[in-house]
Design a protein around this nucleic acid. Structure first.
Lengths: 218, 218
DNA sequence: CGGCTTCTTGATCAAGGTCAACCTTTGTGG
DNA sequence: CCACAAAGGTTGACCTTGATCAAGAAGCCG
């Protein structure tokens, strides 16, 4: 798979990495460092953050495979990433079936994560959603060695949390206050601190089983 | 792929086809006829319908591949389906790379549909959600030759619509009335009728591009 | 030190949930 | 074939959650 590598790139914070709509360049990437978001913009002005993109995650798979995709990817921090040759994907499937299978399983895990998010938005209240999101983020970061102990860096603004869980910025504040007052989690500045982890997991319906952590592949 | 076929089965309406939790039997299926739902149950009693399963759709892929899955699949009507040998999936990846690729692309399309549903729940109001759901269902049915003209059969209760779009049964009623009064769509008895299709699509943010129709594979 | 953006909070408003009642359909046993 | 029961559909009244508006406080550059 290393043979697919084309170039090593970097962009500053808050730029569009993969645009919605028709693809302009072959654009299959893996993220090396930094944070990104995968999101959709609505004509009405709203935005849904579909997922946070962390180091090791693929970017632009649907866009390159289908030639166009409604999702766009933006950098939240400065990021470095690596461009892959999307055209060699069929070859990969022919010559590396076990790798292809791993790729397939990865998509399936993503699907389970997506199902969880849907359940979150459909069935749970504001604080539960936030609690879940924070716990999941912590575990994804931890799996990458980017979070140790009770607190770690979280380069997100309130708006990002809001757009991720389908709430208004103002209401995210209220929910965060709840979590803080109950000693479950705290977001201050650009830091996340998990308080009573066990209680938070129970409260927000979080279980690692339901939130398989995507593993860096490349 | 026909070589994977193991048995032809049927179950009555409202039964569990694939259970949540650890897998009891090798359980990879394709649906032949009837309707199913893929859903998650919450400890709190809530239920999120993740998707409606229509003829041609796969059932139980994550469960068989991972040995367990939080999702369960239930029949809404009497269904007939076909059991596949999940163990031959690695073989399929080795010997039928182009089929594997198709399977992979199918998952990617599912992911786009899931992203759309997330955006729906996170950003849109009750009537928009329902309108979108109804339009998408109609197009998926039409792609299978199960819906022609302005109306067709829709074997869903209000609760199912409610659990699918994350609303209460009562509020689904209110939203349906809206759609009816505005001449956009109507659900009566077990029938769905689409009124002004163009207007409904605009109203609910529906576009076929964003809602790729899953194609029967087997 | 301004002039920006983000954070934070209170006050008010609307969307949606809950409860309860009644109606309609379906189904079942006498 | 009718009577009754059970399940689902429909609607109104009221309450809760979360959105919106507005304004002040705190950071963060130039």
């Amino acid at each position: 798979m290393a043979g697919m590598k084309l170039a090593h790139l970097a962009v500053e914070a808050d730029e569009e990495v993969v645009g919605a709509g028709p693809v302009r360049a072959a654009a299959l990437y893996t993220l090396y460092e930094g944070w990104g978001i995968r999101c959709r913009e609505l004509p009405s002005g709203g935005r849904q953050i579909l997922d946070f993109v962390l180091p090791g995650d693929l970017m632009g798979l649907p866009a390159t495979l289908f030639g166009s995709s409604p999702e766009s990817i933006r950098s939240l921090t400065r990021i470095t990433f690596c461009a892959l040759d999307a055209k060699s994907l069929p070859a990969l499937f022919r010559e590396q079936p076990s790798l292809a299978m791993a790729l397939f399983e990865g998509r399936l895990r993503e699907q389970e994560r997506a199902d969880t998010r849907l359940t979150l938005l459909g069935q749970l209240g504001a604080s539960e959603r936030l609690g879940y999101l924070l716990l999941e983020l912590r575990d994804r970061l931890r799996a990458r060695g980017l979070f140790a102990g009770r607190s770690g860096s979280l380069p997100l603004q309130r708006v990002h949390l809001a757009d991720a869980v389908g709430l208004s910025k103002v209401h995210v504040m209220r929910a965060l206050r709840q979590l803080r007052e109950w000693g479950l989690a705290e977001v201050t500045g650009r830091m996340l601190t998990i308080g009573d982890e066990r209680k938070l997991a129970r409260f927000s319906g979080y279980s690692v089983a339901h939130a398989p952590i995507s593993h860096p592949l490349l």
